[in-house]
């Protein structure tokens, strides 16, 4: 291939798909950029791989651990709601100063929180790992603010009218994590078993945690 267009010089005649409009081209571009950054000494060899490993080590299990602790320890919950980064450090989650601040929003019988970022896709990745595709989709970014109950219904969550739906549009420096309500029937479970009920989606707010019954029935 002799040359190719600079990315911003492309016309707009692309098919209406949301992934891989030019299969392989972006992958090749990223491979070239990474190679050049290392060749030119901007990045040290192995530096990018270490960042890959660090990012891949994060998952919703991290956020779930914090939620489960908050369910069993009211003092921890109070600290988590007041200053999330400091409380999370108690669990071993040391957040670098460069990481965005986190605010935890508590769901109750009266109020249910739902998180979105309409401007890009801000997400608490160091507590939840990689965001799901739907969180980054144009449909979610547009509908979560103006039709949150419709969106939650698609996820199988129907809330009564007397529950106040509170949508959080994380438009700036704060990443929001939802502290979902502890499920009924989970009284006898220990912290580790509780953490298994805490799903990624329940910490975004599109659904509630798993119910303990199926786990006990097994």
């Amino acid at each position: 291939m002799s040359s190719h267009d600079h990315p911003h010089d492309h016309g707009s005649g692309h098919p209406g798909v949301s992934q891989d409009v030019e299969p392989g081209l972006h992958a090749l571009r990223v491979k070239a950029i990474e190679a050049l950054l290392v060749e030119k000494g901007v990045c040290a060899p192995g530096e990018i791989q270490r960042a890959v490993d660090a990012a891949e080590s994060r998952s919703p299990a991290d956020g779930a651990k914090a939620v489960a602790r908050a369910w069993v320890d009211p003092d921890f919950k109070a600290r988590l709601l007041l200053d999330a980064k400091a409380a999370l450090a108690e669990l071993g989650y040391e957040a670098a100063a460069s990481l965005p601040d986190v605010v935890v929003a508590e769901n109750t019988g009266k109020a249910h929180h739902l998180v979105v970022c309409t401007l890009c896709s801000c997400y608490p990745t160091w507590l939840l790992g990689r965001p799901p595709d739907w969180y980054k989709s144009l449909a979610y970014r547009s509908r979560a603010v103006s039709d949150p109950r419709g969106v939650m219904r698609e996820f199988g969550l129907e809330l009564d009218d007397d529950v106040e739906v509170r949508v959080l549009d994380s438009a700036a420096d704060i990443r929001y994590l939802v502290l979902p309500m502890r499920p009924r029937g989970s009284d006898g479970l220990d912290e580790a078993a509780l953490a298994k009920l805490v799903t990624r989606d329940s910490m975004i707010g599109v659904s509630n945690p798993l119910s303990p019954e199926p786990a006990l029935a097994g």
């Binding site: 039709d147 007397d162 739906v165 509170r166 549009d169 438009a171 700036a172 420096d173």
Partner: peptide, 12 residues
């Protein structure tokens, strides 16, 4: 379409 008590919160 939701109840009048529903809220939206945004950082400004």
């Amino acid at each position: 379409s939701g109840p009048r008590s529903d809220k939206l919160l945004a950082d400004v």
